[in-house]
Design a protein around this nucleic acid. Structure first.
Lengths: 192, 192
DNA sequence: TATTGTTATACTCTATAACTATA
DNA sequence: TATAGTTATAGAGTATAACAATA
C-alpha cells in the first residue's frame, strides 16, 4: 500500500502522458487517426474477432468501437463478415490493404520510439509495459468485481455522466467496458 | 535499446491507459473536468505562476491552458493578478475556494487509487511514476532539442495537423509545448 | 426479455490561426 | 519584430440514450 502523495503524483503523471500519446498520434499515416490505429493493431495482434471483443480490448464503449470500425471499414482496411453462429454479430478481419496500413503504422511508431527511447534499456521498457499493464488490470478487474462502492465519503456530487444526475442505469452499468488485459501474454499474434 | 515488438506493445499500453484516466475523471467534483483538476493540482504543487509556465507543466498549447484557466477562474477557484514585471502577463494563484476544491479533488483521487491499488507496494507505485516521468522526459527533451528530423523513412504523407498539408510554421514550432518535467523532484509543493 | 450492434447527440480535450496588448 | 495571452473554429475521442435485429 502506497501513500497519498504518491497517488497524487501518479494521477498527475497519468494525465501528463497524454502528451506522449499525442506525439505518437501525430506521425500516423493519412486518414488513420489513433482510434483506427488501435483497431488495426488489435486485429493484427489477436486476429479476427467480434465487435464486443474488440470493444473489450479497446476498453471503450461499443458505440465508440462501432465508429472506429466504421472508419477503417470505409477505407477498406477491414471487412465485416456475418457471424454464422449469431446473426446479430459481425466478424472483423483485416484486408490485405489493412495489413499494409498496419505495417506502415508499425514502422512509423517503432521509428519514433527508437529515436526517442534510444537511451532506454530493454529491461526498462519492459518494466514500464508491465507496470502499465498491471495498472490497467488493477482498475479493470476492480470494475468488473466491485459494484462501485466508494459511497462512504462523498462531499459534493460527482460529475457522473454529463447532465445525468440520475445515476447509472442498469443497462449502462452492464455496458461499462471491462478490459480483458490481453497484453498480459507477450504479443502472441493469432493470425485469424 | 529495446526491440520492435516491445515498442508496439508500449504504444498499445499508452493508448490503453486512457481507460484508467477516464476512471479517475469520473469521480471528479461537480463542474471540475480533468483539465480544471490539472490546473488546480499544478498550482497547488508549484505555487503561483504565469500562464506560459502552466502551459509548460500541462504539456499542452497555451490556448488550451487559457481555456482551462478561464474555466476555473469563472468558478472562483483561482485569480489572475497582473504581473508587475510584465504587463502582458498574469499571475495565477489559488483562492481559498480553490484550495478547498483541490482538497476535495485530492481526497477523491486518493480514495479511488487506494481502493484500486491496494495490492501495490510503495516501491511499485514509485517505479511506475519514475518510468512515466522518464518517458515524458525522453519525448519532451527530444522535441526541444532536435527539430523533428524523422525525414529518412516517410512512405505515405503524415497526418500532420488537421488539413495543414503545408507543414509546421515557424511560430507553431516555437509554440509546441515543451514540458519541463517538474515531477522529477518529489512533490515539493511551493506554497505561493 | 436480453444481447449485439448502429446511430444521434452532447461533452471534453486539443491544436491552428487570427487578434490584442505589451516588450 | 517578438512575446504573452485570448478567442474562434475545427477535429478527435468518448459516453449516454434510443433504436433495430436477433437470441
Amino acid at each position: 500500500m502506497a501513500e497519498q502523495a504518491q497517488f497524487e503524483e501518479l494521477a498527475r503523471q497519468l494525465s501528463a502522458v497524454g502528451a506522449v500519446k499525442r506525439d505518437l498520434a501525430r506521425i500516423l499515416p493519412h486518414e488513420c487517426p489513433a482510434g483506427s490505429a488501435a483497431v488495426l493493431t488489435l486485429l493484427g495482434r489477436h486476429g479476427s474477432m467480434r465487435m464486443s471483443k474488440l470493444a473489450e480490448l479497446l476498453a471503450v464503449d461499443m458505440s465508440v468501437t462501432s465508429r472506429h470500425v466504421a472508419h477503417v471499414a470505409e477505407r477498406g482496411w477491414i471487412e465485416r463478415s456475418p457471424d454464422p453462429a449469431d446473426k446479430r454479430s459481425r466478424i472483423l478481419h483485416l484486408t490485405p490493404t489493412g495489413e499494409a496500413t498496419l505495417q506502415d503504422l508499425s514502422r512509423r511508431s517503432t521509428e519514433l520510439l527508437t529515436e526517442r527511447l534510444s537511451d532506454w534499456s530493454d529491461e526498462e521498457v519492459e518494466q514500464l509495459i508491465r507496470l502499465m499493464t498491471r495498472l490497467r488490470a488493477s482498475f479493470g478487474d476492480c470494475r468488473a468485481t466491485a459494484p462501485h462502492p466508494r459511497s462512504a465519503a462523498g462531499t459534493a456530487p460527482d460529475r457522473g455522466s454529463p447532465k445525468a444526475t440520475t445515476g447509472p442505469t442498469l443497462t449502462s452499468a452492464a455496458r461499462a467496458p471491462t478490459p480483458v488485459l490481453d497484453a498480459l501474454e507477450p504479443t502472441t499474434r493469432t493470425p485469424a
